[in-house]
């Protein structure tokens, strides 16, 4: 019997320096293909670079950010980026960039959130159906 799982995805590495992001994205696509739900993808540590629009892949190399965007648009999966982790790494969302008079380089499809947001989601999902919830760290 098919059991639908709810996944919380935690991404921790940058797109060029690691395969981490692509592995996470492929996992998400496969899970949805099989009928599961991805509740959110959360970007922490160097993972915040996945949201960085200033990263320019070399000619002939794939743009992972574009693939995240396509995935999120198709599946309506929220892409959440940790603000504290991102500011420290020069990845600035609109409100922070404006406050610091710097330029924004987080793609607008990514939501700047606190880590509390991820753990609240974990709390909520795990209290309503602990068996269905699976947290995956990449």
């Amino acid at each position: 019997m098919f059991v639908m799982n709810k996944f919380l995805i935690f991404v921790t590495r940058s797109p060029f320096d690691s395969l981490n992001g692509l592995t996470a994205l492929s996992f998400c696509e496969a899970a949805i293909e099989l009928g599961h739900e991805i509740e959110q993808v959360f970007f922490y540590q160097q993972g915040v670079q996945q949201a960085n629009v200033d990263i320019q892949p070399a000619t002939g190399e794939k743009n992972l950010l574009a693939q995240w965007l396509a995935f999120s648009e198709q599946t309506k999966t929220p892409l959440n980026v940790c603000v504290t982790a991102s500011i420290k790494r020069g990845v600035l969302s609109e409100p922070d960039a404006t406050a610091m008079r710097l330029h924004c380089n987080v793609h607008c499809a990514f939501n700047p959130v606190g880590m509390a947001d991820y753990f609240s989601a974990l709390n909520t999902s795990s209290s309503c159906d602990p068996d269905a919830l699976i947290c995956m760290q990449f």
Binding site: Y44, G114, F119
Partner: peptide, 19 residues
């Protein structure tokens, strides 16, 4: 690396929301 720091910050944030 920043891993030790990142782990501690995650712990405090999780505890703050009742995890």
């Amino acid at each position: 690396t920043s891993a030790a720091q990142d782990a501690l910050e995650a712990a405090l944030a999780a505890s703050n929301v009742g995890v």
